[in-house]
């Protein structure tokens, strides 16, 4: 039996090859870290519920994309139906950080006039000794693009939960304020309420939904 959820958000995870996108998602959705992992081909799908406040659950559908350039023609088809995204770079790989701008441009072109709510993720923070990107410069870049910045490690399970949950909360706030609304033909946000089903315990949320409709 599926747990009750308020909304379903579709997220996309992007960034250069080998920055650890799949590992981060697997840690988040499956709670484990694979030492060996096949490079992603095309796009993979994952899902998990998160509780952003006691009793308030959001269902996340997460698209894990291949970082390799050759797959871009496939992966870019997934931008449009994403409400949020994690843009990853590897803190031990300067080039992956330098490409952040390109990734943003790439998504922008494909979702206009809408926007994807991104969080910038500096991944593999357990490898601090090999760091090539300082926290300060990453924060500066994130701020310049109006994103939050967080450092994570899938291997040591650092901030993985927080990265996804914070992003989910931010999107939730935007939805609540009506800045993002549910739209026919757009998969980014869906309401979890099935018509004619009464969830008496969810008073607050019911009113929220009225605002949006």
């Amino acid at each position: 039996m599926e747990a009750i959820w308020l909304y379903q958000f579709r997220l996309i995870v992007i960034g250069d090859s080998t920055v650890g996108k799949s590992c981060l998602i697997r840690r988040f959705t499956e709670g484990r870290f694979a030492q060996i992992s096949d490079p992603t081909v095309g796009v993979d799908f994952f899902s998990r519920l998160v509780e952003i406040e006691p009793g308030k659950r959001i269902k996340l559908q997460i698209w894990d994309t291949a970082g390799q350039e050759r797959f871009r023609s496939i992966t870019r088809a997934y931008y449009r139906n994403s409400v949020g995204g994690l843009l990853l770079f590897d803190i031990t790989n300067r080039r992956s950080f330098q490409n952040v701008h390109e990734w943003l441009e790439e998504t922008k072109v494909h979702v206009q006039p809408y926007q994807i709510v991104f969080v910038l993720v500096g991944h593999k923070c357990d490898l601090d000794t090999q760091r090539q990107v300082t926290r300060h410069e990453a924060e500066k870049l994130a701020a310049a693009y109006g994103m939050k910045y967080i450092e994570t490690s899938a291997r040591d399970a650092i901030n993985v939960e927080k990265a996804f949950t914070d992003l989910t909360r931010d999107i939730y706030e935007l939805v609540k304020r009506g800045e993002i609304s549910i739209q026919e033909g757009w998969e980014g946000v869906k309401s979890g309420f099935v018509p004619n089903v009464v969830h008496s315990s969810e008073e607050v949320v019911k009113s929220d939904r009225r605002c949006l409709c």
Binding site: T18, G20, Q35, I36, P39, G67, R70, D90, N93, S96
Partner: peptide, 13 residues
């Protein structure tokens, strides 16, 4: 670790 094997920067196409 083997994980290191999955680390190489994206080359421009």
């Amino acid at each position: 670790s083997e994980e290191a094997c999955v680390r190489n920067p994206l080359q421009k196409q």
